[in-house]
């Protein structure tokens, strides 16, 4: 019996963690308010890699890691496009991925939005002119917002999401 009681009262590891990034927190809180308004509490994102150099993926994974933990703000990354409000596409869209990109987009229910994350997806990366890519995400999908960067930092991505909420509100959808 002593052990469970000790476990309940012993200091919790999570309490020690005080690595807060003020700018990120501020943007996050603002984003949460906007998401509440536009999507009714939660925003579901399907990540779609169409040929990035994988650093953008690492930053997107970081958004869910302890320093950022964006689920607090109502943002979640979902396993299927069928559950998604937003398709977050990275990479310059390789020829080999083009069909899969189209199918993934088509599988997401309307209304849906597309954000291009990283220089490659925005069309300003090194592979824009290669024979092996279409050049940018907007060559194949209707991109609502571009978040440039090589790769953009987690805070920049979050700011991008905030901007997306504004765009959606303005469109009146």
């Amino acid at each position: 019996m002593a052990n469970p009681i000790f476990n309940i009262f012993k200091p919790k590891v999570t309490e020690k963690f005080t690595l807060r990034d003020e700018e990120f927190e501020a943007v996050g809180k603002q984003l949460k308010r906007e998401i509440d308004k536009v999507f009714g509490r939660s925003l579901a994102i399907r990540e779609l890699d169409s040929g990035s150099d994988n650093s953008t993926e690492i930053e997107l994974v970081n958004l869910g890691a302890p320093h950022y933990d964006v689920e607090r703000f109502g943002v979640s990354f979902v396993a299927s496009p069928r559950h998604a409000d937003v398709i977050a596409i990275t990479g310059a869209v390789t020829n080999n991925m083009a069909i899969a990109v189209k199918k993934t987009y088509d599988a997401a229910p309307a209304p849906k939005f597309v954000i291009a994350i990283g220089d490659d997806a925005c069309g300003t990366g090194v592979f824009a002119d290669s024979y092996a890519t279409l050049g940018s995400a907007d060559k194949i999908l209707p991109v609502d917002l571009k978040i440039p960067g090589n790769p953009p930092s987690p805070t920049e991505i979050l700011k991008g999401l905030l901007a997306l909420m504004k765009i959606i509100l303005e469109k009146g959808q």
Binding site: A92, M97, D129, S130
Partner: peptide, 23 residues
């Protein structure tokens, strides 16, 4: 694999070595 084939090797051809560092 190779869904992400971006043409790295061809892209470097004809570029100066300095330009290729980015690639």
């Amino acid at each position: 694999m190779f869904y992400k084939h971006r043409g790295v090797e061809k892209l470097a051809e004809g570029k100066t070595p300095e330009e290729c560092v980015k690639i």
